[in-house]
Amino acid sequence: MSWPVADLDPVRRLRALAAAIPGAHVAERVIPAPFATVWAVAGDLEEEFGTFEPDMRRLTIDSARPDGRLVARARSRYGMRARFDVDLRPGWCWMQSRFLLVGLAATAVPEGTLVAQTGGVRVPGRAALVPWGVRAAGDRALARLAARVAGRSA
């Protein structure tokens, strides 16, 4: 006899985590492409991440564990460098540096893939973001991601 179990997809998980971070906004968008196609772009930290995430030009993975936990070095568009702790799994990417936070999630839906993004500049020493511009930045990141996916599918 088995009891029903509720499953939480990565986008719902991102909403829950972002709700605990004052200043965070979750941008969402449906990309009309299969999950595998979308995540091949969204989860490619070294080649693709900098093409759609704001303030991120180049990301290099320094070390990786089998459980998906990575350490990465990033350079922003303005030349600043940062060390990121990263949790990368299919449909899920959560990364944190001293000054930045980025969360990305994706799940298959009938229309394609629902993607969600949150992040921004951290309030030092707290699980909070400086709220200026996070909404527009998230929407722009997902629009760029959709364009990259469309480019790859074309």
């Binding site: 009891w3 029903p4 179990v5 509720a6 499953d7 939480l8 997809d9 719902r12 998980r13 909403r15 829950a16 985590l17 709700a19 605990a20």
Partner: peptide
């Protein structure tokens, strides 16, 4: 939480887990 909320909320289980996580955090 999925094992707790699933049998109580049934089809609304994912909503319940999401709301529980929000309250917990």
């Amino acid at each position: 939480l999925g094992r707790i909320c699933g049998p109580i909320a049934l089809d609304s289980g994912p909503d319940a887990v999401q709301e529980a996580l929000i309250a917990i955090f």
